[in-house]
Amino acid sequence: MAKQRTFYGAERFIGFLTPLALLGLWEAAARTGLIDARFFPAPSSIVHTFGALVASGELWTNLTASLRRLLLGMLVGGVPALFLGLAMGISRPLRAAIDPLIAATYPIPKSAILPLVLLIFGLGETSKVVMVALGAFYPILINTVMGVANIDKIYLDVGHNFRASRWQVFRTIALPGALPSIMAGVKLAMGMGLILIAISEMVAASDGIGYMIWNAWQVLTVDTMYVGLLVIALLGFLFSTIIDEVERLLIPWKART
């Protein structure tokens, strides 16, 4: 056990070492002119720009704008997807009625719908929220339906035998039984949301991380572009950590014995 733990510690250490070594190499290459610093600015200069963007408040403004759209979109898309998914999981007729619609619309790349969304919802906040919502809707819906439909039939027999009402079956069996699958859907939805918020802010926004990256391209402040990418990467990491924690709280029975 103790041996295993030290090995685990060593693994983590190596995990930190690789990116650090790469960064060091990058820094050296940029400073010696081995790579073109106009396209690959040295990490130190990116950090410097990061500090400047934080100090000016620019980063904060863009970050909060993106976060607001992202979270709002997750709710607007995720909550209906959750309820529709649970209903479809329980009711076979409903599933039969809606499945073809989902199967037909799911493969359309969400980014391809952006012009239509802009046309319908205009250039304001709504269109960005709708884009994230569209991205969140499908993975949560599909995972929820699957989660409910795959619940072992014996649990439903137990519910039936103990005279659980439809609502009780829903609350005590369908929902908790599908929860692991639902959480997997939320994770996918969050990744999709990050992609879509970046794309839609590039096309149609005057703030947000996506806007910041696109604007940096237009005025050729390459450092800022890298800061934007870094922020998105950090957001992705942060969200998946938060979702993992929430999962541990919501699904304690999956904990190791």
Binding site: N161, R163, I173, P176
Partner: peptide, 17 residues
Amino acid sequence: RPENSMVFQGDSLFPWM
């Protein structure tokens, strides 16, 4: 009182409870 309750074959306990 309820008419009947069943003890099922195999694992029928709810894993989430």
